[in-house]
Simulated scan of single mutants.
Amino acid sequence: MAIIKCPECGRQISDKAPTCPNCGVEIAGKVIKCAQCGEVYFNNQESCPNCHHHTPLSFQISNDNTAEPARNKKENNRQADTPTVQIPVPPTNHPTSTNPAQHQKKRKKSVAGPVIISLIIAVALCGVCFYFYNSSKKEKEMNDYAFAMKSDDPLVLQTYLNNNLDAPEEHRDSVMARMEFLKRQDRDWSNALVSGSKFALQDYLAKHPDSEHAQEARHKIDSIDWADASNENTLEAVQLYLAQHANGEHVDEANAALKKIKTKTVTQEDRAIVTRSLRRFFQSVNAQDESGLEDAVTPLLTNFLGKTDATKADVLTFMRKIYKDDIINMNWRLNNDYKIDKKEIGDERYEYTVSVSALQSIERTDKDKEKEARYRIKATIDPDGYISAMTMTKILE
């Protein structure tokens, strides 16, 4: 028999005691002694709880105390020969003892589970927070970038660069490129203003059609063109201004000037009306076309070859008289020496006064008679192109 410490409560007891009298845990046949450190522990544990050495199950606490003297052995032998009566000890009801190491492991497991779950939840929450923070930061950067790229203010662009140091490289490059563009645009505008020429302003608009100074540049060009047209004061100059600036600031002035100039200026259109009217008249005379001749004049002429308030019949009488019996053929040819004046008689309706020379060629039966004659033709033509007055004067050579 050996005295040991109860593995459960630590009290000194016999290794042969069925149970610990203090805590009631089973002792006899249930404990083992560590071969490494001598610690007594329950034999259902895999290793020593003190040094964690694995002790074979067969190494149990011996009933013999080898350190006792020989006399004790003899006494023990005598006691062995004497029959002993063992008083039965009633079993004590106590809770089944649990190995402390197992308790410790269970406690560790029970604590480790919630800790791990808490860590997982914490990491997940951090991830979610980081995601939303990063998304919010990215969205703010995108909004700042869009606003900066639409702005013409270099200060707005510089603010974006200062507040978004970790923005995507392509965004920062675009903003810096726009800043450089705006600086170049300001330099070009300053140069255009210093020059003050139409060419410099047009060059600026070609490079920067949507800049904040574009409208001012167009205004200056409009003013320059109108000043040039006013100084020249010709039909072509004013018409050119209106063609280039249909919605210009000086359109009303240009239209008034154009009307005034048209009253005094004979245009190609005016010249065409005059020449067409006179040619129709004399071609009808050459062909002895009475119908064509009537269509070339107004119903009532203020003056025709000295006769006032002449009619179309008077015009036909003139043609019949000049075709005498000895005339085989007659040809009137107008020279290109027109002198045309005009005056306004209505809203942009003009009456034309024209002077032009004409050559009359005659083929007669009598070869000795006059064959050619020159005349000065003066006529008045209404806005619709009809002759309303005419005189003919022979030019003596």
Rank of each mutant, 00 (worst) to 15 (best):
A2W: 10
I3W: 02
K5S: 14
G10Q: 11
Q12K: 11
C20R: 07
C34G: 11
E46H: 13
E46A: 15
C48W: 10
C48Q: 06
C48F: 13
H52L: 13
S58H: 04
T66N: 06
A67G: 03
N72H: 04
N76P: 00
R78C: 05
T82R: 09
P83Y: 12
T84H: 13
P90L: 15
P95K: 10
P100R: 14
Q104E: 12
Q104D: 06
K105C: 01
I116G: 12
I116A: 15
I117L: 14
I117R: 05
I117Q: 04
I120Q: 02
V123G: 08
V123C: 14
L125S: 06
S135C: 03
N143L: 06
S151I: 06
D153I: 10
L155V: 15
Q158R: 12
Q158W: 00
Q158Y: 04
L161K: 08
N162I: 02
N162Y: 01
N162Q: 10
P168G: 04
E170N: 13
S174M: 11
R178V: 03
M179S: 12
E180T: 14
F181R: 12
L193R: 03
Q202I: 08
Y204S: 01
L205N: 05
A206N: 13
K207Y: 01
K207G: 00
A217T: 07
W226R: 09
N231T: 11
E232P: 00
V238F: 03
L240Y: 04
H245W: 03
N247V: 06
N247W: 03
N247Y: 08
V251Y: 00
N255T: 11
N255Y: 10
L258Y: 05
L258T: 04
K262S: 14
K264T: 11
D270F: 04
I273G: 00
R276D: 11
R279G: 10
R280D: 04
N286Y: 04
N303V: 02
G306Q: 03
G306E: 01
D309H: 11
K312W: 07
V315E: 04
M319P: 00
Y323K: 15
M330T: 06
N336S: 07
D337E: 03
D341C: 00
R349D: 03
E351W: 04
E351T: 10
T353I: 07
Q360Y: 13
T365K: 15
K367I: 12
K367E: 09
D368E: 07
E372W: 09
A373V: 02
Y375L: 07
R376S: 09
I377F: 12
I381Y: 08
G385I: 09
I387T: 02
I387E: 01
S388W: 05
M390H: 04
I395F: 05
